[in-house]
């Protein structure tokens, strides 16, 4: 393993994050605050509790997940797409590093950034509503696993994309809708039975459910199922990464 190379890539990516620190932090903090104002005040005045949890508090894990998924995918996909776009990828390809080290560097940095943002949103929420974390270790585990898994997904998208459009399409057209429909703002049990079934096809339901369980011990599905599903995604992404590594897909001519 060329640890120095991993370190160099990681630092490079973190420096990129630092350059855009204000907008990276401000945007999610502002949108989180807006969610609380809109959902918490407008809807929360009608729905006071969900599954026995104060509605404002109930949506906190979903909000964190929403940002975590989006940021992981966007950071990692942009991180690897940009060198392809500008041509600076020649340096990664001609350095004594393997694809695995490239992945660790980029995915590590993207996951770090989205975890930091997740924690910032958690802190922001605290200002608006009471938040209780029943299982802090599980909470952190879900946070890290999800960040890594979706950063891997983002990395795959960045390799696959051959234009900025494709880069935008997946987060916008897939991640956001699935998160909204994945129980970020409601318990799946409030849906009619047919839609409940449909919902369980949505992978993100399992992530949000497990994450929420680590806060309030309420869940749409058993927590072991959530953990299993998270690991399934992780393995699936690693599998695709392995395949890209074997074939050099879209990296070299």
């Amino acid at each position: 393993m060329n640890w120095r190379a991993i370190h160099a890539i990681y630092r490079f990516e973190m420096a990129r994050t630092a350059r855009t620190l204000m907008q990276s932090i401000l945007a999610p903090v502002i949108s989180t605050s807006l969610y609380f104002v809109v959902f918490g005040a407008a809807i929360g005045s009608r729905i006071t509790t969900m599954e026995g949890v104060d509605y404002g508090s109930f949506i906190v894990p979903g909000l964190i997940m929403l940002t975590l998924l989006m940021q992981s995918v966007m950071n990692a996909s942009f991180g690897i797409y940009f060198p392809k776009f500008t041509g600076t990828i020649y340096e990664l390809l001609s350095a004594p590093i393997s694809f695995i080290e490239i992945v660790i560097g980029y995915v590590g940095a993207a996951a770090t950034k989205s975890i930091i943002l997740g924690l910032i949103i958690l802190a922001t929420s605290w200002l608006f509503v009471p938040v209780k974390i029943a299982h802090p270790v599980w909470m952190i585990s879900f946070l890290v696993l999800t960040a890594v898994t979706f950063s891997l997904l983002g990395f795959i998208i960045g390799i696959w994309a051959d234009g900025f459009e494709k880069l935008q399409i997946v987060p916008l057209l897939i991640i956001t809708p699935l998160t909204f429909l994945g129980g970020a703002f409601y318990s799946v049990s409030v849906l009619p039975p047919f839609w409940q079934v449909v919902t369980f096809v949505n992978p993100i339901v399992y992530l949000i459910s497990g994450f929420r369980w680590s806060f309030y011990e309420v869940a749409d599905v058993n927590v072991s199922v959530s953990i299993a599903m998270t690991l399934v995604f992780l393995v699936a992404c690693l599998g695709i990464i392995w395949w890209i590594f074997r074939t050099g897909y879209r990296l070299k001519n």
Partner: peptide, 13 residues
Amino acid sequence: ATVSFSRGLFGKP
């Protein structure tokens, strides 16, 4: 920064 990055990428202290 960019020159130092290259050195790191090649695994040199």
